[in-house]
Nucleic acid binder design. Structure first.
Lengths: 160, 160
DNA sequence: GGTGAAAGGTCATTAAG
DNA sequence: CTTAATGACCTTTCACC
Protein backbone atom coordinates (compact mmCIF):
# COMPACT_ATOMS: atom_id res chain seq x y z
CA UNK A 1 0.00 0.00 0.00
CA UNK A 2 2.56 2.66 0.96
CA UNK A 3 5.47 4.11 -0.95
CA UNK A 4 9.04 4.27 0.24
CA UNK A 5 11.61 7.02 0.17
CA UNK A 6 12.92 6.11 -3.28
CA UNK A 7 9.40 6.17 -4.70
CA UNK A 8 8.97 9.58 -3.14
CA UNK A 9 12.15 10.92 -4.67
CA UNK A 10 11.22 9.47 -8.04
CA UNK A 11 7.78 11.08 -7.96
CA UNK A 12 9.30 14.37 -6.92
CA UNK A 13 11.75 14.17 -9.80
CA UNK A 14 9.01 13.37 -12.27
CA UNK A 15 6.94 16.28 -11.02
CA UNK A 16 9.88 18.66 -11.41
CA UNK A 17 10.95 17.45 -14.84
CA UNK A 18 8.14 15.39 -16.36
CA UNK A 19 9.95 14.78 -19.63
CA UNK A 20 12.93 13.20 -17.91
CA UNK A 21 13.86 9.75 -19.16
CA UNK A 22 14.41 6.61 -17.16
CA UNK A 23 18.14 6.79 -17.75
CA UNK A 24 18.51 10.37 -16.62
CA UNK A 25 16.30 9.69 -13.62
CA UNK A 26 18.49 6.79 -12.56
CA UNK A 27 21.53 9.08 -12.65
CA UNK A 28 19.86 11.73 -10.51
CA UNK A 29 18.64 9.19 -7.99
CA UNK A 30 21.91 7.30 -7.89
CA UNK A 31 20.36 3.93 -8.62
CA UNK A 32 20.46 1.51 -11.52
CA UNK A 33 18.36 1.95 -14.62
CA UNK A 34 16.44 -1.24 -13.98
CA UNK A 35 15.54 -0.08 -10.51
CA UNK A 36 13.91 3.08 -11.79
CA UNK A 37 12.12 1.15 -14.51
CA UNK A 38 10.83 -1.39 -12.02
CA UNK A 39 9.66 1.31 -9.60
CA UNK A 40 7.89 3.18 -12.36
CA UNK A 41 6.16 0.04 -13.55
CA UNK A 42 5.08 -0.80 -10.02
CA UNK A 43 3.82 2.71 -9.29
CA UNK A 44 1.68 2.58 -12.39
CA UNK A 45 0.52 -0.97 -11.80
CA UNK A 46 -0.59 -0.19 -8.25
CA UNK A 47 -2.39 2.95 -9.35
CA UNK A 48 -0.17 5.38 -7.48
CA UNK A 49 0.55 7.01 -10.81
CA UNK A 50 -2.71 7.24 -12.71
CA UNK A 51 -1.04 8.64 -15.80
CA UNK A 52 0.98 11.44 -17.29
CA UNK A 53 -1.77 13.33 -18.99
CA UNK A 54 -1.21 16.96 -19.95
CA UNK A 55 -2.16 19.41 -17.21
CA UNK A 56 -4.39 21.83 -19.11
CA UNK A 57 -5.16 25.25 -17.67
CA UNK A 58 -8.86 26.05 -18.23
CA UNK A 59 -8.09 29.77 -18.08
CA UNK A 60 -5.65 29.46 -20.96
CA UNK A 61 -8.28 27.87 -23.20
CA UNK A 62 -10.76 30.64 -22.54
CA UNK A 63 -12.42 29.67 -19.25
CA UNK A 64 -10.89 31.96 -16.61
CA UNK A 65 -13.80 31.82 -14.17
CA UNK A 66 -13.98 28.98 -11.66
CA UNK A 67 -16.79 28.28 -9.23
CA UNK A 68 -17.86 25.59 -6.81
CA UNK A 69 -21.52 24.70 -6.67
CA UNK A 70 -23.18 22.77 -3.88
CA UNK A 71 -26.28 20.97 -5.08
CA UNK A 72 -29.11 19.59 -3.00
CA UNK A 73 -30.57 16.54 -4.68
CA UNK A 74 -34.04 15.07 -4.41
CA UNK A 75 -33.95 11.60 -2.86
CA UNK A 76 -33.52 8.85 -5.42
CA UNK A 77 -32.52 11.21 -8.23
CA UNK A 78 -28.78 10.90 -7.67
CA UNK A 79 -27.99 8.71 -10.66
CA UNK A 80 -30.00 10.87 -13.05
CA UNK A 81 -28.40 14.04 -11.78
CA UNK A 82 -24.91 12.56 -12.18
CA UNK A 83 -25.66 11.56 -15.72
CA UNK A 84 -26.95 15.02 -16.46
CA UNK A 85 -23.98 16.79 -14.91
CA UNK A 86 -21.56 14.55 -16.79
CA UNK A 87 -22.87 16.00 -20.05
CA UNK A 88 -21.86 19.54 -19.12
CA UNK A 89 -18.32 20.19 -20.41
CA UNK A 90 -17.84 23.09 -18.02
CA UNK A 91 -18.40 20.72 -15.09
CA UNK A 92 -14.87 19.56 -14.35
CA UNK A 93 -15.34 17.51 -11.22
CA UNK A 94 -18.20 16.07 -9.21
CA UNK A 95 -18.33 14.71 -5.68
CA UNK A 96 -21.08 13.42 -3.48
CA UNK A 97 -20.62 14.77 0.00
CA UNK A 98 -21.94 14.64 3.51
CA UNK A 99 -23.67 17.64 5.01
CA UNK A 100 -26.62 19.73 3.99
CA UNK A 101 -25.83 19.65 0.29
CA UNK A 102 -25.57 16.39 -1.49
CA UNK A 103 -23.14 17.11 -4.28
CA UNK A 104 -20.25 19.46 -4.86
CA UNK A 105 -19.05 20.28 -8.33
CA UNK A 106 -16.34 22.43 -9.87
CA UNK A 107 -17.44 24.64 -12.74
CA UNK A 108 -15.61 26.90 -15.15
CA UNK A 109 -16.96 29.60 -17.45
CA UNK A 110 -15.83 32.15 -20.01
CA UNK A 111 -16.89 35.07 -17.81
CA UNK A 112 -19.05 35.86 -14.84
CA UNK A 113 -21.93 36.37 -17.23
CA UNK A 114 -21.19 33.05 -18.88
CA UNK A 115 -21.17 31.41 -15.48
CA UNK A 116 -24.84 32.18 -15.24
CA UNK A 117 -25.43 30.17 -18.40
CA UNK A 118 -23.41 27.27 -17.04
CA UNK A 119 -25.23 27.30 -13.72
CA UNK A 120 -28.57 27.48 -15.48
CA UNK A 121 -27.63 24.43 -17.48
CA UNK A 122 -26.37 22.60 -14.40
CA UNK A 123 -29.39 23.28 -12.20
CA UNK A 124 -31.92 23.15 -15.01
CA UNK A 125 -32.81 19.59 -14.21
CA UNK A 126 -35.54 18.06 -12.16
CA UNK A 127 -33.98 16.35 -9.19
CA UNK A 128 -31.88 19.34 -8.18
CA UNK A 129 -33.72 21.06 -5.37
CA UNK A 130 -31.37 23.88 -4.61
CA UNK A 131 -27.92 25.13 -5.61
CA UNK A 132 -25.52 27.50 -3.95
CA UNK A 133 -22.49 28.76 -5.81
CA UNK A 134 -19.21 30.21 -4.63
CA UNK A 135 -17.07 31.97 -7.21
CA UNK A 136 -13.32 31.52 -6.93
CA UNK A 137 -11.44 34.81 -6.67
CA UNK A 138 -7.90 33.59 -6.11
CA UNK A 139 -6.17 30.24 -6.07
CA UNK A 140 -3.30 30.66 -3.61
CA UNK A 141 -2.52 26.93 -3.68
CA UNK A 142 -3.24 25.19 -6.99
CA UNK A 143 -3.82 21.45 -6.84
CA UNK A 144 -0.61 19.88 -5.57
CA UNK A 145 0.52 16.44 -4.55
CA UNK A 146 4.23 16.62 -3.78
CA UNK A 147 3.92 17.68 -0.13
CA UNK A 148 1.64 14.71 0.43
CA UNK A 149 4.03 12.38 -1.37
CA UNK A 150 6.82 13.60 0.89
CA UNK A 151 4.67 12.94 3.92
CA UNK A 152 3.65 9.50 2.69
CA UNK A 153 7.18 8.41 1.76
CA UNK A 154 8.94 9.79 4.81
CA UNK A 155 11.00 12.31 2.87
CA UNK A 156 12.34 15.36 4.66
CA UNK A 157 11.54 18.84 3.41
CA UNK A 158 14.01 20.48 1.05
CA UNK A 159 14.67 19.32 -2.52
CA UNK A 160 15.13 15.66 -3.04
CA UNK B 1 -6.03 33.05 -26.67
CA UNK B 2 -8.10 30.14 -27.93
CA UNK B 3 -7.08 26.80 -29.33
CA UNK B 4 -8.00 25.41 -32.70
CA UNK B 5 -9.23 22.04 -33.78
CA UNK B 6 -5.75 20.59 -34.29
CA UNK B 7 -4.74 21.69 -30.79
CA UNK B 8 -7.86 20.00 -29.48
CA UNK B 9 -7.10 16.75 -31.26
CA UNK B 10 -3.51 16.86 -30.02
CA UNK B 11 -4.58 17.41 -26.42
CA UNK B 12 -7.10 14.62 -26.72
CA UNK B 13 -4.44 12.30 -28.07
CA UNK B 14 -2.02 13.21 -25.30
CA UNK B 15 -4.71 12.62 -22.69
CA UNK B 16 -5.51 9.22 -24.15
CA UNK B 17 -1.93 8.07 -24.57
CA UNK B 18 0.34 10.32 -22.54
CA UNK B 19 3.49 8.43 -23.41
CA UNK B 20 2.95 8.88 -27.12
CA UNK B 21 5.88 10.44 -28.92
CA UNK B 22 5.89 13.49 -31.15
CA UNK B 23 6.55 11.32 -34.18
CA UNK B 24 3.72 8.90 -33.47
CA UNK B 25 1.39 11.79 -32.69
CA UNK B 26 2.18 13.37 -36.03
CA UNK B 27 1.27 10.11 -37.75
CA UNK B 28 -2.04 9.83 -35.92
CA UNK B 29 -2.96 13.44 -36.59
CA UNK B 30 -1.87 13.32 -40.21
CA UNK B 31 0.45 16.30 -39.99
CA UNK B 32 4.20 16.79 -40.09
CA UNK B 33 6.34 16.13 -37.06
CA UNK B 34 7.48 19.73 -36.96
CA UNK B 35 3.89 20.85 -36.79
CA UNK B 36 3.18 18.74 -33.75
CA UNK B 37 6.38 19.95 -32.15
CA UNK B 38 5.52 23.58 -32.86
CA UNK B 39 2.00 23.14 -31.51
CA UNK B 40 3.30 21.47 -28.38
CA UNK B 41 5.85 24.22 -27.82
CA UNK B 42 3.20 26.88 -28.30
CA UNK B 43 0.70 25.17 -26.02
CA UNK B 44 3.30 25.04 -23.29
CA UNK B 45 4.59 28.56 -23.92
CA UNK B 46 1.10 30.03 -23.71
CA UNK B 47 0.34 28.08 -20.56
CA UNK B 48 -2.40 25.92 -22.03
CA UNK B 49 -0.34 22.91 -21.01
CA UNK B 50 1.06 23.55 -17.55
CA UNK B 51 3.08 20.37 -17.58
CA UNK B 52 3.02 16.61 -17.76
CA UNK B 53 3.50 15.84 -14.11
CA UNK B 54 2.54 12.39 -12.86
CA UNK B 55 -1.08 12.18 -11.79
CA UNK B 56 -0.73 10.70 -8.31
CA UNK B 57 -3.74 9.13 -6.61
CA UNK B 58 -3.81 10.19 -2.94
CA UNK B 59 -5.79 7.08 -2.07
CA UNK B 60 -3.05 4.86 -3.48
CA UNK B 61 -0.42 6.45 -1.25
CA UNK B 62 -2.50 5.93 1.87
CA UNK B 63 -4.90 8.87 1.95
CA UNK B 64 -8.28 7.51 0.86
CA UNK B 65 -10.40 10.13 2.64
CA UNK B 66 -11.12 13.43 0.88
CA UNK B 67 -12.94 16.42 2.33
CA UNK B 68 -13.71 19.99 1.45
CA UNK B 69 -13.46 22.59 4.18
CA UNK B 70 -14.93 26.07 4.02
CA UNK B 71 -13.07 28.50 6.26
CA UNK B 72 -14.23 31.85 7.52
CA UNK B 73 -11.28 34.16 7.95
CA UNK B 74 -10.87 37.12 10.24
CA UNK B 75 -10.44 40.34 8.26
CA UNK B 76 -6.81 41.08 7.44
CA UNK B 77 -5.57 37.61 8.35
CA UNK B 78 -5.79 36.18 4.84
CA UNK B 79 -2.09 36.16 4.07
CA UNK B 80 -1.19 34.54 7.38
CA UNK B 81 -3.85 31.90 6.99
CA UNK B 82 -2.66 31.07 3.48
CA UNK B 83 0.89 30.69 4.67
CA UNK B 84 -0.27 28.43 7.46
CA UNK B 85 -2.42 26.26 5.23
CA UNK B 86 0.39 25.91 2.71
CA UNK B 87 2.43 24.10 5.36
CA UNK B 88 -0.15 21.34 5.75
CA UNK B 89 0.73 18.52 3.32
CA UNK B 90 -2.78 17.10 3.48
CA UNK B 91 -4.11 20.42 2.15
CA UNK B 92 -4.05 19.79 -1.60
CA UNK B 93 -5.74 22.90 -2.93
CA UNK B 94 -6.82 26.30 -1.63
CA UNK B 95 -9.18 28.88 -3.09
CA UNK B 96 -10.49 32.18 -1.87
CA UNK B 97 -14.15 32.41 -2.67
CA UNK B 98 -17.16 34.68 -2.57
CA UNK B 99 -20.03 33.89 -0.28
CA UNK B 100 -20.31 33.30 3.41
CA UNK B 101 -17.02 31.49 3.74
CA UNK B 102 -13.81 33.09 2.69
CA UNK B 103 -11.71 30.11 1.67
CA UNK B 104 -12.32 26.64 0.35
CA UNK B 105 -9.72 23.92 0.63
CA UNK B 106 -9.42 20.28 -0.35
CA UNK B 107 -8.09 17.97 2.32
CA UNK B 108 -7.11 14.32 2.38
CA UNK B 109 -6.54 12.01 5.33
CA UNK B 110 -5.60 8.43 6.15
CA UNK B 111 -9.00 7.72 7.69
CA UNK B 112 -12.03 9.48 9.05
CA UNK B 113 -10.32 9.57 12.42
CA UNK B 114 -7.17 10.97 10.84
CA UNK B 115 -9.28 13.64 9.16
CA UNK B 116 -10.00 15.03 12.61
CA UNK B 117 -6.26 15.48 13.15
CA UNK B 118 -5.89 17.22 9.77
CA UNK B 119 -8.81 19.53 10.44
CA UNK B 120 -7.49 20.34 13.87
CA UNK B 121 -4.19 21.30 12.33
CA UNK B 122 -5.88 23.34 9.61
CA UNK B 123 -8.18 25.30 11.89
CA UNK B 124 -5.77 25.49 14.80
CA UNK B 125 -4.66 28.95 13.82
CA UNK B 126 -5.73 32.37 14.95
CA UNK B 127 -7.39 34.11 12.06
CA UNK B 128 -9.70 31.23 11.25
CA UNK B 129 -13.07 32.08 12.78
CA UNK B 130 -15.08 29.08 11.72
CA UNK B 131 -14.77 25.98 9.59
CA UNK B 132 -17.34 23.68 8.05
CA UNK B 133 -16.29 20.40 6.50
CA UNK B 134 -17.95 18.16 3.96
CA UNK B 135 -16.56 14.65 3.57
CA UNK B 136 -16.48 13.20 0.08
CA UNK B 137 -18.31 9.91 -0.21
CA UNK B 138 -18.09 9.26 -3.93
CA UNK B 139 -16.37 10.89 -6.86
CA UNK B 140 -18.63 10.17 -9.83
CA UNK B 141 -16.66 12.54 -12.07
CA UNK B 142 -12.95 12.79 -11.30
CA UNK B 143 -11.20 15.95 -12.42
CA UNK B 144 -11.41 16.05 -16.19
CA UNK B 145 -10.50 18.48 -18.92
CA UNK B 146 -11.13 16.81 -22.26
CA UNK B 147 -14.83 17.73 -22.58
CA UNK B 148 -13.87 21.35 -22.01
CA UNK B 149 -11.05 21.13 -24.53
CA UNK B 150 -13.52 19.79 -27.07
CA UNK B 151 -15.85 22.65 -26.35
CA UNK B 152 -13.05 25.21 -26.55
CA UNK B 153 -11.57 23.87 -29.78
CA UNK B 154 -14.82 23.26 -31.59
CA UNK B 155 -14.34 19.49 -31.79
CA UNK B 156 -17.39 17.33 -32.20
CA UNK B 157 -18.16 14.57 -29.74
CA UNK B 158 -16.88 11.08 -30.35
CA UNK B 159 -13.22 10.10 -30.54
CA UNK B 160 -10.92 12.21 -32.51
C1' DG C 1 26.65 -3.24 -23.29
C1' DG C 2 25.11 -2.81 -28.15
C1' DT C 3 21.62 -1.25 -31.51
C1' DG C 4 17.65 0.54 -33.73
C1' DA C 5 14.53 4.37 -32.98
C1' DA C 6 13.01 8.64 -31.71
C1' DA C 7 13.54 13.44 -29.92
C1' DG C 8 15.08 17.94 -30.81
C1' DG C 9 17.18 21.31 -33.59
C1' DT C 10 17.90 23.79 -38.01
C1' DC C 11 16.86 24.97 -42.73
C1' DA C 12 14.70 26.09 -47.32
C1' DT C 13 10.51 25.75 -49.60
C1' DT C 14 5.71 26.40 -50.02
C1' DA C 15 1.00 27.57 -48.72
C1' DA C 16 -2.33 30.55 -46.55
C1' DG C 17 -4.02 34.48 -43.73
C1' DC D 1 3.89 40.48 -45.66
C1' DT D 2 3.51 37.53 -41.77
C1' DT D 3 2.59 33.25 -39.94
C1' DA D 4 2.51 28.44 -40.24
C1' DA D 5 3.23 23.84 -42.28
C1' DT D 6 6.25 20.74 -44.57
C1' DG D 7 10.00 17.49 -45.57
C1' DA D 8 14.92 16.99 -45.23
C1' DC D 9 19.03 16.47 -42.71
C1' DC D 10 21.83 15.94 -38.49
C1' DT D 11 23.26 14.88 -33.70
C1' DT D 12 22.32 13.30 -29.19
C1' DT D 13 19.86 10.47 -26.28
C1' DC D 14 17.09 6.91 -24.87
C1' DA D 15 14.46 2.34 -24.66
C1' DC D 16 14.70 -2.27 -25.47
C1' DC D 17 16.93 -6.66 -26.11
Amino acid sequence: MGIDELDGRLLHLLADEPRIGVLEASRRLGVARGTVQARLDRLQATGVIRGFGPDVDPAAVGYPVTAFATLEIKQGQGADVRAHLATVPEMLELHTITGHGDMLCRLVARSNADLQRVIDRVVGFTGIVRASTAIVMENPVPLRIIPLVRQASGLADGPG
